[in-house]
């Protein structure tokens, strides 16, 4: 692993840790996807995880919310060991984590309003209907989709679906955001818009985020710190300048290819 100077959001302050992963291993059949991986996410930080397809990026964040069970290692999220949580406690922890899926994963039998209402009804149970409607309208306005309230997901473009999906994730005020390839399949202009939105969300909702991507522009726009995965292990850690100035062949080939 190539390790550059330790980069934390505000290294002088001793930032609070929100996610701590130690020796995480995960495999499928004969293939080992993650190999004793360790990483930390600090409060208020945008951590970008770069890597080629199949390097284990998505598996990593799916393990964090326990959509996949790790074979080995510990994952501490907001001070709780995810692997040891019973279903009720896990559900409560998941309420604090927003997960933006690669495909958007909007419920296609529901309108955009119903999509946002779905988690809101279950997580913010105390909100009245009026408060719920107001919250939905505000969130959709924030992502620039105020006029799509009664539209079906199939009526939206790819970029709009990503925004709607992001709105559904942030409507419940999560503390941690996990983005799985947020700009994949989008044109450069729309991708730029999504990257800006990720930064907006961090500022407005004070979230800590892990952004899984292989889009260098997205990494450049959003990253406080970058980790590059290769064959299930951390290959390099640093900020965008460290990566761009790196003379390592693998890093160079990745950055040149994507430039």
């Amino acid at each position: 692993m190539i390790k550059n100077k330790k980069v934390t959001p505000e290294s002088t302050k001793k930032p609070k840790m929100v996610i701590e992963i130690n020796n995480l291993s995960k495999g499928f059949d004969d293939m080992q996807v993650l190999k004793k991986l360790s990483l930390k996410l600090y409060d208020g930080e945008n951590l970008v995880v770069l890597g080629k397809s199949g390097s284990g990026k998505s598996v990593l964040i799916k393990c964090i919310v326990r959509l996949l069970n790790p074979d080995q290692g510990t994952i501490m999220v907001l001070g709780e060991n995810v692997s040891e949580l019973k279903s009720k406690k896990l559900a409560r922890l998941r309420e604090k984590i927003g997960f933006l899926f690669q495909s958007g994963a909007l419920y296609d039998s529901m309108t955009i309003k119903e999509n946002l209402e779905f988690p809101l009804r279950r997580i913010k149970k105390k909100l009245s209907k009026k408060e719920r409607d107001k919250k939905i309208e505000e969130t959709l306005e924030h992502v620039g989709l105020a006029d799509t309230l009664h539209k079906m997901p199939s009526e939206l473009s790819g970029g709009m679906r990503k925004r709607a999906s992001l709105a559904r994730t942030i409507v419940v005020d999560p503390m941690i955001m996990l983005y799985d390839e947020p700009t994949t399949g989008l044109d450069p202009v729309t991708s730029g818009g999504i990257s800006a939105l990720i930064n907006d969300v961090q500022k407005k909702y004070l979230t800590s985020s892990i952004i899984i991507t292989h889009d260098i522009e997205c990494a450049r726009a959003t990253a406080d710190r970058i980790i590059m995965l290769k064959d299930g292990e951390i290959y390099m850690e640093g900020n965008i300048d460290d990566f761009e100035n790196s003379t390592d062949e693998v890093i160079q080939s990745f950055f040149k290819q994507k430039a």
Partner: peptide, 21 residues
């Protein structure tokens, strides 16, 4: 078909992470 397509498009996972069984 409905549940299969929800599974393939990660809608079931999305439901799970939004605290809905």
């Amino acid at each position: 078909a409905e549940l299969g397509s929800m599974k393939v498009s990660e809608q079931i996972d999305a439901m799970e992470v939004s605290s809905t069984h």
